[in-house]
Design a binder for these strands. Structure first.
Length: 580
RNA sequence: GCGCUCGUAGCUCAGUUGGAUAGAGCAUCCGCCUUCUAAGCGGAAUGUCACUGGUUCGAAUCCAGUCGAGCGUGCCA
């Protein structure tokens, strides 16, 4: 049980005793350290319901509150109950956490299977900075869920079957430069894609592209061979980026994986009356089954509310991503026994997911579907970055630049580091900086892409966090004999020590809340606070030069901080160097 | 038109779901390396929480409206 849960259960016991009936109450971390460590506004909430005086009620609660060996409590302001944790209680927690491989994190996901659908780039298009959010946020959520005990299936649902292949095959047949394809396959695919994209104003060419797509989806061997070749080179290119980012998938079930199920699904939807034909296409309509406020299929047009269908088969017989998504969701439930599916996809697709989830419900698929949406990365013009126009910054370029800047910083700040070791650290620091920039902000905010913002190395950044770990390791490097943290007695006397303990205890409290709203930035905030607490401790409290038993106590505190920091950063997908 | 996501310090952003004097980082100013890595620490300064009303003991947070930004709204994904 976390410290917060312990306080909560004691508070509930006191409330029940005071009021003579069971009541629930919440404890939160204190808004300000002046008020203590934790606080509750239960007295004010209940006083309102029962028309009592909040401070008097708070006193009544405190009279029934048993906080022996944990904390002291007092009343403040309009009726807050503030808890101050006893240093001895923190010390006891520290000793327990040092022996706990899970660092106090409860296994809230045990027994549940979650499919995390993230990254999902279109193959044969370059990954640009706009793709970074899904990849990094999704990977972090997958890592966090795994640590919380979920069975996690990370699935890269790549766009390998869409309309762009009509254009690519057309381009392959008309404009392909074989030499360029051998030299740099991805760039060549991008080049022909953009070339055809620019030409498709011509209705003749557009039709030719559509015809190539229909041939492909019908199984034409020549187009299939071109398609396969495109997939292979694209996947190899993507894999390089994922390796560099240390992002791993359990599966790459792209859209093409579900191809042979699509016709059956359309037939089933028609048969069950969920879908019907309209203007030659097969569509899912709401048909007035819901009030318009909560109906994803109704959209307002100039002439009023109108049914806005999800199209699952085009008039020309082709299938769309609503169709593949239905097939995919069926597969994930039937084959993977998913209890939850998290789609880490941008805000612009929210209408699609509302319709998809609604259609799935009508289809009888029960599962917790979540669209984990995130804001857009905008260009300098404050417009969305788009692949088609090709003006935006490539993902590889961003990583290269990040590592280069990190290398420059290392050369400046620690010239002793040289060669291969320096290069490895630059990679860890540079990539970490990019990931942290992404994960430390709320996922819904739109932002304008900026090199300095994404690659900052000062302040609230990954290097600050990595540096705190480096400082800890440097203490242990200077240690003459091996140190066993589990046998140390913990003594907390200095403010900086107590504050460090205060934060170490919170790791297990923070982590489960992240998945309530899918907000890795809460973890980012936590590790920043932890690192700040450590840096203050490091400046204020000598470790190796202090006398026993303080020396061992502080070494144990360092060891626990090191593990917690490393684990927290790992869950954000960020590595820690031994020195920097 | 309608819907969605937003609007917080000079800049970039947090704000634990209605709580106490709204917080960080950057930039600015003042201190700190004969002591475990100064990519650091300590301190100062910085606000009409877009605007107007409403709900209540209490609002950046909830409701209504206005202004502003981005996105979406039938055969792309």
């Amino acid at each position: 049980m976390t410290l917060l849960q312990e306080l909560e259960s004691r508070l509930v016991a006191a409330l029940t005793a005071a009021l003579g009936e069971p009541v629930s109450a919440a404890v939160t971390t204190a808004a300000d350290l002046r008020f203590g460590d934790y606080q509750s506004n239960a007295a004010m909430v209940l006083a309102k319901q029962q028309k009592k005086n909040p401070r008097a009620l708070a006193q009544e609660i405190i009279d029934h509150l048993d906080l022996t060996d944990i904390a002291t409590a007092d009343i403040a302001g309009p009726g807050f109950i503030n808890f101050r944790i006893l240093p001895a209680a923190y010390a006891a927690r520290m000793a327990a956490l040092i022996r706990d491989e899970r660092l106090g994190v409860p296994a809230t996901g045990a027994g549940k299977t979650v499919v995390v659908d993230f990254s999902a780039p279109n193959v044969a298009k370059p990954m640009h900075v706009g793709h970074i959010r899904s990849t990094i946020i999704g990977d972090s959520l997958a890592r966090i869920a795994r640590f919380l005990g979920f069975k996690v299936i990370a699935d890269n649902h790549i766009g390998d079957w869409g309309t762009q292949f009509g254009m690519i095959i057309y381009g392959w047949n008309h404009f392909l430069d074989e030499a360029a394809l051998t030299a740099d396959p991805i760039s060549e695919l991008v080049r022909i894609y953009r070339k055809v994209n620019a030409l498709k104003e011509d209705p003749g060419i557009l039709d030719a592209c559509k015809a190539e797509l229909v041939k492909l989806q019908a199984g034409d061997p020549e187009n299939l061979a071109i398609w396969q070749k495109c997939i292979d080179v694209s996947k190899a290119g993507l894999q390089k980026i994922y390796d560099r980012l240390e992002v791993k998938f359990d599966h790459w079930h792209g859209e093409s994986y579900y191809n042979d199920r699509l016709a059956g699904i359309v037939a089933e939807f028609l048969e069950k009356g969920i879908a019907r034909e309209s203007a030659g296409a097969i569509c899912i309509f709401s048909d007035g089954t819901k009030p318009k406020e909560e109906d994803p299929f109704l959209v307002h047009k100039e002439d009023g509310w109108t049914d806005n269908p999800a199209i699952i088969r085009k008039a020309d017989g082709g299938f769309l991503y609503a169709t593949t998504d239905l097939a995919t969701l069926q597969y994930r439930i039937d084959e993977w026994k998913a209890d939850h599916v998290w789609y880490v996809v941008g805000v612009p697709q929210q209408l699609h997911f509302r319709q998809l989830f609604d259609a799935a419900a009508r289809w009888g698929k029960s599962c917790d579907f979540q669209h984990v949406q995130f804001g857009s990365i905008l260009g300098d013009d404050r417009k969305l970055m788009r692949t088609r126009t090709g003006e935006n910054v490539g993902l590889v370029e961003v990583l290269e630049e990040a590592v280069e800047r990190a290398a420059k910083a290392i050369a400046e700040k620690n010239p002793d580091l040289q060669g291969e070791e320096a290069a490895r650290i630059a990679e860890t620091v540079g990539i970490g900086a990019v990931k942290f920039a992404e994960l430390s902000q709320g996922r819904l905010t739109d932002y304008v892409f900026s090199w300095d913002r994404m690659l900052a190395l000062q302040g609230d950044t990954a290097p600050y966090l990595q540096y705190s770990h480096v400082r800890i390791r440097s203490i242990f490097r200077k240690l003459d004999a091996p140190f066993d943290a589990t046998s140390a007695d913990i003594h907390l006397t200095e403010d900086a020590e107590i504050h460090l303990a205060r934060l170490l205890v919170r790791f297990g409290e923070v982590l489960p809340t992240i998945l309530e709203d899918f907000r890795p930035n809460l973890l980012a905030n936590y590790v920043l606070e932890l690192a700040r607490a450590f840096h203050s401790f490091f400046e204020a409290c000598p470790v190796l030069k202090s006398d026993e038993p303080i020396r061992s106590s502080r070494l144990a505190l360092c060891e626990l901080t090191s593990r917690t920091l490393k684990q927290g950063l790992y869950l954000l997908g960020i590595n820690v160097p031994e020195r920097m």
